Computed example of a mutant assay.
Amino acid sequence: MRRPTICVTLSGCSVEEMLADAARATAVGADLCEVRLDKLWVVEKPPEPVKVEDPPKDGRRRRPVYNPPEFTPQSFDSVDLAAALDAFKGGIDLPVVLTCRPERQGGYFSGTEEQRIGVLRTAIESGVSWVDLEIDIKAATRKELMSLAEGKTQVIASTHSANEPPNASEIISDIEGMEASGEIIKVCYNTSGRNSGLKLFEAAWNLKDSQLKTSIMGMGAGGDWTRIHGPLLHQDLVYSTMESGSHLSSQGRINASDLLIAWEMLQYD
């Protein structure tokens, strides 16, 4: 059974933090690193400490409370993009996916779309292995970026919906409509549990023998099912993280080491 490509989305909001995370990803056996350029334009504020409560009288253990950090946007001029790209090129051993996710698709880039397209253009011109281009970029602009990438940078065509996934046939129809938009088609939905996860699983199962290269996932409970069963579903690309903690499953994410252990236990390797 062919193992999907494992892509670790690097944590951190600075070049130094991302480079440190890339070293950890390399050590555990990841195949790709995703650099979220949009996170360079925010500053992370750690959450307030959680008040420790007395143990419940019934003796049951409570799951630790996860408080997500806050992110404060910074001005566009606060980042030296050329220097950052040079640092990533020299400091990451694995092939890299460069992404600059806009706020409208759940990202952190709060600048103008013109500025963001400039970031993506510079990313492609840097000679990076992969670039993530959202499917909702204006057609003429996206065509220009695709032409710029042709022959040197592979494209992940992505869409990230804040809505629950539709039924499997609609998911498949959306993916088939994106076929010419990139080498790999990535779709991500907001998931809330069993029903959401099953829709994504069914869509991936029905596409597993097609010629389409896909990465189907959710953000939320049940969103990690297609990641955990990526080899069975013939997923081409599975996203993971070097973060750890019980909160990951409720976000649909999975630690890269845990993912590899799961595949071994399920005899997918």
Rank of each mutant, 00 (worst) to 15 (best):
R2N: 01
R3N: 12
R3L: 08
C7A: 12
T9R: 02
L10Y: 07
G12W: 11
E16T: 08
E16S: 09
T26S: 12
A27L: 11
G29E: 00
A30S: 13
A30T: 05
D31P: 05
D31Q: 13
L40N: 12
W41I: 15
W41V: 12
V43E: 10
V43Y: 00
V43N: 06
P47V: 02
E48K: 00
P49L: 06
V50H: 03
D54A: 11
P56V: 06
R61G: 10
R63D: 08
V65T: 06
V65Q: 11
Y66F: 15
P68S: 07
P68H: 04
P69V: 08
F71V: 01
T72D: 00
F76N: 14
L81K: 05
L81N: 10
A82I: 07
A83H: 01
A83P: 03
D86H: 04
A87M: 01
A87E: 05
G90W: 00
L94F: 05
L94P: 09
L94D: 01
L94W: 09
P102D: 01
E103T: 09
Q105Y: 06
G106M: 06
G106I: 06
G107N: 00
F109V: 06
G111M: 13
E114S: 15
V119G: 11
R121T: 07
E125D: 01
G127A: 00
V128E: 04
V128H: 01
S129P: 07
W130P: 09
W130D: 14
L133M: 04
E134L: 13
I135Y: 13
A139Y: 01
T141N: 02
E144C: 01
E144D: 04
E144M: 01
M146Y: 04
L148G: 06
E150F: 12
E150Q: 11
K152N: 11
K152A: 12
I156P: 06
I156E: 02
A157N: 15
A157Q: 15
S158Y: 03
T159Y: 14
S161N: 08
S161Y: 14
E164M: 10
E164N: 14
P165L: 08
P165W: 08
N167L: 05
S169C: 05
I172F: 03
I172C: 04
D174W: 05
I184T: 14
I184E: 06
I185W: 14
I185H: 09
G193T: 15
S196M: 02
K199D: 03
K199A: 11
K199H: 02
K199F: 12
L200H: 03
A203W: 05
A204N: 07
L207A: 09
D209C: 03
L212C: 13
L212D: 10
K213L: 13
K213D: 15
I216H: 00
G220C: 07
A221V: 06
G222F: 10
W225V: 13
T226L: 01
R227G: 02
R227H: 08
H229F: 06
G230A: 10
Q235M: 12
L237G: 12
Y239M: 11
E243R: 07
L248F: 02
S249R: 08
S250D: 04
S250A: 10
N255Y: 07
D258N: 04
L260H: 00
A262N: 00
M265Y: 10
L266D: 04
Y268L: 09
D269T: 03
